Structure formats: structure tokens, C-alpha cells
Amino acid sequence: MSRVPSPPPPAEMSSGPVAESWCYTQIKVVKFSYMWTINNFSFCREEMGEVIKSSTFSSGANDKLKWCLRVNPKGLDEESKDYLSLYLLLVSCPKSEVRAKFKFSILNAKGEETKAMESQRAYRFVQGKDWGFKKFIRRDFLLDEANGLLPDDKLTLFCEVSVVQDSVNISGQNTMNMVKVPECRLADELGGLWENSRFTDCCLCVAGQEFQAHKAILAARSPVFSAMFEHEMEESKKNRVEINDVEPEVFKEMMCFIYTGKAPNLDKMADDLLAAADKYALERLKVMCEDALCSNLSVENAAEILILADLHSADQLKTQAVDFINYHASDVLETSGWKSMVVSHPHLVAEAYRSLASAQCPFLGPPRKRLKQS
């Protein structure tokens, strides 16, 4: 649940008159999402009104509101027999009622949201009550392989729920002597030191190019640089560091992050930047690179990204790559990247197969709970 924001200063709310007192009302909304995959969808019983329910879910471990999704594969009634019906059901509720908006969509073979439908307002739910769409999607369109909505005969539904909580009022009075504290510009100011090479005390040599930097900042941000300058190493004695395995453009992006906490060109060089972040123990930059690479996972590059993640101990990226390969196994196994990995990294192939087997055979063990970014 997000923290209630402070109200904007009255002088910034309007260029008009300023009242002596004010009130700011925040209506709290808890948002969460749920993904439900139905394997072997074409084998569902086709009687009209037949119901399939998901397991229950909530916004978190401490949330007492429990929900589930309900599907009628062949419609709810005679009117909707040519459609799939989809509903959000409130299973248990400690209150007399709650209000919530919802959005349903289908994830296609690429994991993209399609055929989205959402409620136009927050509906009133009581325990045992459901709301949804009797005519969510035509069955003939859903079952047509050309539309790519049932890869490997799996129907994957994605649901986003927004639950309306209580409202909170914050009130106060205006004073004539309003003090406005300026925003912190530390990142910009440190970035200026790097860009202008002011007050530098060490030189970093990268592929024949020299960059002036500040030992204190490098040591504070990177345990690797800290070790170089702290001990009686040649880098500490000469205040000069030779860097041979990072390209200059990648190095500059890494230094921008060290000084400012930002990497504006990360998406263009996420793979190389991940390697640099791993070498210099820049954990936050490493996770930022993992996130960017996750966003660009595809059938063509899944094997290469899995190898990269394994090489640099990028655990979150590795998990996402394995899950992606499992979901698109029939396509990924035909790529040149996968065939190369079979020869060069057989242990990763074995890991992917083990994960695929456990996903398809849940009876082999208890269900695993899916539970950071600093």
C-alpha cells in the first residue's frame, strides 16, 4: 500500500486566492494483479454453464480479502454459449462490502496482453458476489490457432484489481511565511564533478583513453575500487588504474551511474553493462540491467540471455529466462542460440529441462510459493 502523499503547497495549487485553511483528501486504492494459466484448455468440458475456478489470491499475505477468477468455457447461458465468460469473485471478506475495479486480458504466445476488457467503474462486491463479462471473447476466435491465444493449448488470463480503501483527510492552515525547501541536487552536482573533471585525484585508463576521477567517490560506490585504493596496490601508489576489459562507451555509462545513480543509455548496452556491474560489484546497476534484459526477452535471444545471466550470477534474470524458455519451449528449441547452448553450456540445458519437467508435473513435489530491489 502506498504512503499517503503530503498535500501540495497551496501557493502551487492555483494562481488564484489562497485560503486560510485547507483539506486534502486521499482515497486510498490498493492495486494488484494475478495470472492464471489453464493447461490443455481444449479438453475443458463443453457443457453450457460449466465452471472452472482459479485458486484464491489477494494483494498480499496480510490481506484478508480473498478473490478468485471464474471461467465458463462455453458461456454462462444460452445467450453467451458462443463466448467464454469471465468473472472476478470475492471469496471471503471481513467487511460487509468492498468496491473494486478490474481489468481482464489474455496473454498471447509472446506474453503480450490482448483482448483487454475492464470495468468502467468500481463495482460493489459482497462475499460470494462476482462481476465480469458474460461475453468476454468469442470461442471461435479464441480457438483459432492463427490468433495465437492458446500457445501449446494453454489459456493464460491476466487480471488487474484495484480495491478502494478508506479515504484519509489531511488538513492544515496557511501561513504568510511559507518556506520552500529546494530539491536535493546531489546527483546532478556529483555528475558535474565527473563531467568537468574537477578536483580529480586519479586516472582511469580504458582502451587508450584516459578519464579523470575521484578516488573517494569510486571507493564509496564500488567495493572493488575501494579494495584497489585501500591496500598497497599499484593503483593506490600511482593513482592510476588500467581497465582492459570494458569498452570506453560502456565504461562511461558505468561511471555515470557511479556518480549519479542513473544510467540513461542502459537499454542500448544492458548486456555489456551487466558484465561491468558484476565485475565492479555495483549491485543496483546489475539489477537494473537484469530488468532491462528481462523486458527484451524473446524467442530468438532467450538462450543467449540465459548464458549471460549464468555467467554473471544474475539470479533474477536467470529465473526469468528459464521461465520464458519453459513457456515458449517449442519455439526456443528451434533457435540457433539454443542449439549452440546445447554444445557450449549443457548444464544450462539440463537446468531448463528440470524446470520444465517440474512445471508440467506438479505432483512430483509440493507447490512452490512464489514470493528486491534495493
Rank of each mutant, 00 (worst) to 15 (best):
E145C: 11
D245H: 03
E47Q: 03
D310G: 06
I307A: 06
G208L: 15
E113F: 09
S222N: 14
E290V: 11
L204P: 15
R139F: 10
Q316Y: 10
S59N: 03
V164R: 11
I38L: 05
L157I: 10
Y87G: 01
P366I: 14
N72C: 10
T25I: 02
G16A: 09
K53Y: 03
F257R: 00
V332M: 07
K372F: 09
K95C: 12
N301A: 10
L84S: 07
F141D: 09
S33D: 13
K372I: 04
I170F: 01
V343W: 05
A275P: 02
S336M: 13
A277G: 05
S14A: 02
V164H: 02
T114A: 12
L190D: 05
C294G: 15
L297H: 00
F363W: 14
V18N: 07
T260K: 07
V71H: 15
K74R: 11
M254F: 04
N196Y: 13
K53R: 09
P367F: 05
E210V: 02
P151M: 11
V163L: 14
V224A: 15
K135F: 12
Q320D: 08
P182Y: 06
G75N: 11
M228A: 09
P10D: 04
Q212L: 11
K28D: 05
A116H: 15
K64D: 04
V4Q: 02
G75T: 04
L306F: 04
G132L: 00
S171E: 09
C44K: 01
V246S: 04
N265Y: 02
V91E: 15
S197T: 11
S197Y: 10
F43I: 06
A61Y: 03
D201T: 14
N301K: 08
L371G: 13
P362D: 14
A359F: 04
V343I: 07
F363K: 15
L69N: 15
P8D: 04
Q209P: 11
A292G: 03
V332W: 01
Y327R: 07
N174Q: 03
L69T: 12
F199N: 14
G75Q: 14
P182I: 12
Y123H: 01
L218W: 14
C361F: 10
H345S: 03
L204F: 15
Q209V: 15
E189V: 05
V29C: 08
P362F: 15
N169L: 03
E160S: 04
S295N: 04
R240F: 06
V206S: 13
A109Q: 06
Q360D: 15
S42C: 07
K238R: 08
L317D: 00
V163E: 03
L69R: 00
V250L: 01
F199I: 15
D291K: 09
S80E: 08
K103H: 14
M254E: 00
P73A: 06
K215N: 11
E78A: 04
V206K: 01
F225C: 15
S105D: 12
L65P: 09
M255Y: 08
R3K: 02
S80I: 13
I243T: 02
R124A: 15
K279D: 08
G191Y: 11
D201Q: 01
L317A: 13
W338K: 00
Q360S: 13
I106M: 15
L69S: 05
C256D: 05
D130P: 04
T319N: 04
K180G: 02
K103M: 12
V246G: 04
E12Y: 13
F141G: 05
A350I: 06
L65A: 12
S340L: 04
G337Q: 06
F136A: 08
S80P: 14
S167F: 07
A187L: 04
T156F: 11
T156N: 09
R99W: 10
K154W: 08
L149D: 03
D278Y: 09
L371M: 04
E232G: 11
L204M: 13
N108R: 14
S236L: 07
I325C: 06
K95S: 06
C184H: 01
C205V: 14
S336H: 10
V332D: 00
C159Q: 01
E210S: 15
Q212V: 11
S355P: 08
S313P: 03
K318E: 10
E113Q: 03
R185T: 05
L86N: 13
Q212D: 15
W194F: 03
S42H: 05
I38F: 05
F251Q: 00
V163G: 07
D166P: 00
R354L: 05
A329C: 12
F363S: 11
A276S: 04
